[in-house]
C-alpha cells in the first residue's frame, strides 16, 4: 500500500499542468496564483508534501479535492457505489453468459450455440466498448425506444432511494421503493449490457478452452463410463475449470474499475472512472491520489478473494 502511495504521489506530480492556474482560469493574476499555490501547500518541497499527505491518510483524510472543494473521501464514497453497482452487475452477467455459452458450446459441439460463440469470440475484443454503447443507445433507445435514456443512474425526476448499501437496486428493494427500483434497474440495462458484451467474449474464450480440455480428460471419460448423468459430469468438469476462470474474473473486476470510464461517460453515470479522468484533466492531485489509493485497496481485496476462492476450488493449492 505504501508503495502504491509513494509511486502515485510522485508520478502524479510529474503530470504537466498547474492546478492553481486551472482553478483560477486564464485571467488570473500571477499574484493570485502564487497565493493559491501557497494555500494549497504546493510551494513546499515535494518531500514535505509527501509526509504531510501520509500523515493525513493515516488519519483517514485523503485531502480536499482542489476542483470540487469537497473532501476527496466524501467524493469517492459518493461515486464508488455507482461504479461498483455497475461493474458488479456487469461481472455477474459476464460470468453467467460467458460460462454458460462456453459450456453449451463444448457440450453440444457443432450446435448452433457453438457456431454462434465462435463468431462472437472473433468479434468480441475487436469492438471497443464505447462503440457497443453507442450502437445500443442508437438502436434500443433512439430507434426502438425500449431502453431508458442514457442519463444517469435513475430518472432525474425520482429521488434516489435512501442510502443503505449505495446500490440503488438493493436500496430501493430494501425500502420498498418500486418506482426507484424499476427506474434504476432499467437504467442499468444498457451499460451492463455494454460491459457484458465486451468482456464476456474473453471469459467465454478462456472457459471454452479450459472447460473443453477438462471435458475431454480421462476422469470425465471414466465418469461417463461409470454411468453418471450428464448434469453431474458437466458440474464436475466445471468445478475443475474454475481456477483460471476465477483468475480472469478477478482481473476483469479490477480492470473495469477504471476501464469502465468511457461507458460511464456515455451514460452520464457519475462513477469513479469519470471522477478520476476529471481529476487528471484538472490536475486535481488529491482527488487523483485518493482514487488510485481506493482502486489499489479494492484490487488488493479482489485478489485476496481470488486467492481464497482458489483454495476452495482446488484442494491441491494451499494459499
Amino acid at each position: 500500500m505504501f508503495g502504491v502511495m509513494f509511486a502515485t504521489f510522485f508520478l502524479i506530480r510529474l503530470l504537466p499542468g498547474d492546478p492553481a492556474l486551472l482553478l483560477l482560469g486564464n485571467m488570473a493574476t500571477p499574484e493570485a496564483i502564487v497565493s493559491l499555490r501557497e494555500r494549497l501547500g504546493l510551494n513546499d518541497s515535494i518531500w514535505v508534501q509527501f509526509v504531510r499527505y501520509l500523515d493525513n491518510v493515516a488519519h483517514g483524510d485523503l485531502g480536499t479535492s482542489i476542483f470540487t472543494s469537497n473532501p476527496v473521501l466524501q467524493d469517492l464514497l459518493e461515486r464508488a457505489p455507482a461504479t461498483l453497482e455497475l461493474i458488479c452487475w456487469a461481472m455477474l452477467a459476464t460470468v453467467i453468459i460467458g460460462v454458460a455459452v462456453a459450456v453449451t458450446a463444448v457440450v453440444r459441439r457443432g450446435g448452433a450455440v457453438d457456431r454462434a460463440s465462435r463468431i462472437y469470440g472473433l468479434a468480441a475484443g475487436a469492438i471497443p466498448d464505447f462503440w457497443v454503447a453507442l450502437l445500443l443507445i442508437y438502436f434500443l433507445f433512439y430507434l426502438l425506444g425500449v431502453a431508458p435514456a442514457p442519463f444517469g443512474r435513475i430518472d432525474a425526476l425520482l429521488p434516489p432511494p435512501n442510502r443503505i448499501t449505495g446500490f440503488y437496486i438493493i436500496d430501493s428493494l430494501l425500502t420498498g421503493n418500486w418506482d426507484a427500483f424499476i427506474s434504476s434497474a432499467g437504467r442499468l440495462v444498457l451499460p451492463v449490457l455494454t460491459l457484458t458484451i465486451v468482456n464476456a467474449g474473453a471469459l467465454m474464450k478462456l472457459t471454452r478452452t479450459v472447460f473443453g480440455d477438462v471435458y475431454r480428460s480421462d476422469f470425465i471419460r471414466h465418469a461417463r463410463a461409470s454411468g453418471l448423468p450428464e448434469s453431474v459430469i458437466v458440474r464436475s468438469a466445471l468445478r475443475n475449470s474454475l481456477p483460471p476462470i476465477i483468475t480472469l474474473v478477478g482481473f476483469l473486476f479490477g480492470f473495469l474499475l477504471g476501464a469502465a470510464v468511457l461507458v460511464e461517460t456515455l451514460f452520464a453515470w457519475g462513477g469513479l472512472g469519470q471522477y478520476a479522468v476529471q481529476a487528471v484533466v484538472n490536475s486535481d492531485y488529491p482527488a487523483l491520489q485518493g482514487f488510485v489509493l481506493v482502486a489499489a485497496a479494492f484490487i488488493l481485496l479482489v485478489y485476496m478473494t481470488v486467492d481464497i476462492l482458489y483454495e476452495f476450488a482446488d484442494p491441491r493449492i494451499k494459499v
Binding site: S217, D218, F219, H222, A223, R224, A225, S226, G227, L228, P229, S236, R239, N240, A313, D314, P315, R316
Partner: peptide, 24 residues
C-alpha cells in the same frame, strides 16, 4: 445405456490417478 454403464458393466482403466476427479 447410462444405466448399463457402471450399473451392469463397470470399467476399470489404467492409471487410476487420472481417472479420479482431482477436486472432489
Amino acid at each position: 445405456k447410462r444405466a448399463l454403464r457402471g450399473g451392469e458393466v463397470a470399467l476399470i482403466g489404467t492409471n487410476a490417478k487420472l481417472l479420479l476427479d482431482p477436486v472432489a
